[in-house]
């Protein structure tokens, strides 16, 4: 599988470590009323779809950036790659 890194161009997926569902970017608020339930959900439950899946890949053997890759889990076709930082910023996060 080739992942088209937004900065470095096409890279072999073997350079990356797979982290999991990109929903992991949205860490719950630890001060929320239902923080426990939210963290159980965040830590352990997954959508695990057959089809398009947004997921985090860590460029461990490269520039060590985190990417959000949109990949079809039935064909391995990759239809989008973004820097996780950009995705988080678009959602209003500062870091």
């Amino acid at each position: 599988m080739i992942i088209n890194h937004p900065i470095l161009g096409p890279r072999d997926s073997a350079e990356f470590t797979y982290i999991g569902d990109a929903a992991l970017i949205d860490r719950p608020d630890w001060q929320a009323e239902d923080a426990l339930a939210q963290f159980v959900d965040y830590g352990y439950l997954r959508d695990n779809p057959a089809g398009k899946h947004k997921e985090l890949w860590f460029h461990e053997q490269g520039d060590r950036s985190f990417l959000v890759v949109t990949r079809d889990t039935t064909t391995h076709e990759i239809s989008g790659v973004e820097l996780a930082r950009d995705v988080a910023r678009k959602r209003g996060r500062r870091k």
């Binding site: 999991g20 959900d41 352990y44 439950l45 997954r46 959508d47 695990n48 779809p49 057959a50 889990t73």
Partner: peptide
């Protein structure tokens, strides 16, 4: 499992 149980509105502690 996740595919089937999603029909009962369940999210599972499972990845395929």
């Amino acid at each position: 499992s996740s595919r089937l149980m999603s029909k009962a509105d369940m999210r599972l502690p499972i990845e395929s």
